[in-house]
Design a protein around this nucleic acid. Structure first.
Lengths: 205, 205
DNA sequence: GATTTTTGCACCTAGGTGGAAATT
DNA sequence: TCAATTTCCACCTAGGTGCAAAAA
């Protein structure tokens, strides 16, 4: 139970709130993208272990394209609708799908102390957006990959990827408006910011 | 007007919102300290120039004790009330008066791009507070000092202080409740969060 | 037409104010 | 009694929701 110095191969990444993600995944998760950037719900939360408590790490999140297809929602189901659009490039000629966790860089001890949350991450469909948001194409599928990078005395030698993981239940389709009512209901039921849309259901008061 | 590579001695630190600070200073600035931590108003805002755009820096803020005295507010004035209490030590046996700007470490280019703000800093009188707040003693005087540290390849050699500055107009007395009505009025008039206490003054509704 | 995107909104969460009363 | 501190509060700022209508 006490933390120990482990070789890189023992670095472990776990999805903290996997159960909630599975409830969405069951109905095909949708995430809103907007011009100004929209947070994800559920939030991506991971637990790290096996890091060197005193070494310095950065943690990245990358949105990986899951298929070569474009999708549409038809007759209550998501179906393929042709080949994927080519990934658009931003002003810096990059795909802009990588996000650095704001606590980076930090010692392993800090990363392992408590689950790390990507709640501040924002998804956008606006290529001109410069606010470090993640650029995605609507109606395309993605899966988040978390990447742990060890920094060797910062810049003296190349950073080294010591672990990376993507969880199938966190796969989602980017949309500009929700398509599936079941997904909407799960968002309303579980996201505190959507409380205003909940039925009060019971005989309270 | 174009940024240039300057030797450390040309690093410049300016107080961004000096005029507002002077209006408070005129009446002796007071800052509230609480158990849970209270923000400062006015906010400390500085402008940096003359850094190496590509070198890595951290920016710190330290609260320096200004006098050996304890103060009290009597007959509408701040007067000396004996010798200062010894600075209490926190659980880590440190005075806990240094705050690292959350953007640290970052390249000089980033620090110079826009004024840097310490609006998230919180003052506390609670020694058990572990939330990286600044510990101060009520009824004592302090002046904030901003310190720019150059990080040489992170940990390979000692960090080097390349500049530091404290501005007399940012001097203040820590209090648990405001003493001077003029200071209260300036806070209410200028802090957006205190808008609820403003007289609507005009003939509006 | 039909589908996809944008905009403005009421309704929330989250948390920063000084006042006033209670406490130390 | 007095001075200093703590607690709770109404009233704000700031910004995250899905909805509905409008626009593309």
């Amino acid at each position: 139970a006490s933390p120990s110095l482990a070789p890189s191969s023992d670095v472990k990444i776990e999805l903290e709130n996997a159960e909630l993600w599975r409830r969405f995944h069951e109905h095909t998760t949708e995430m809103i993208v907007t011009k100004t950037g929209r947070r994800m719900f559920p939030t991506l939360r991971y637990r790290l272990s096996g890091l060197d408590p005193n070494a310095t790490y950065a943690v990245l999140l990358e949105m990986e394209s899951v298929s070569d297809c474009r999708y549409k929602f038809q007759n209550g189901r998501w179906v393929v609708a042709g080949r994927a659009d080519p990934p658009p490039l931003d002003a810096n000629h990059r795909q802009g799908r990588t996000y650095t966790h704001p606590d980076s860089p930090a010692p392993g001890r800090i990363w392992m102390r408590q689950p790390l949350s990507f709640h501040r991450i924002k998804l956008t469909n606006n290529l001109l957006d410069q606010n470090a948001h993640i650029h995605l194409s609507s109606m395309h599928r993605y899966v988040p990959r978390v990447i742990v990078v060890k920094l060797h005395e910062y810049f003296t030698s190349m950073p080294q990827v010591v672990a990376s993981a993507s969880f199938p239940e966190t796969d989602f389709i980017a949309v500009t408006a929700y398509q599936n009512e079941k997904v909407i209901q799960l968002k309303i039921d579980h996201n505190p910011f959507a409380k205003g849309f909940r039925d009060n259901g019971g005989a309270e008061r």
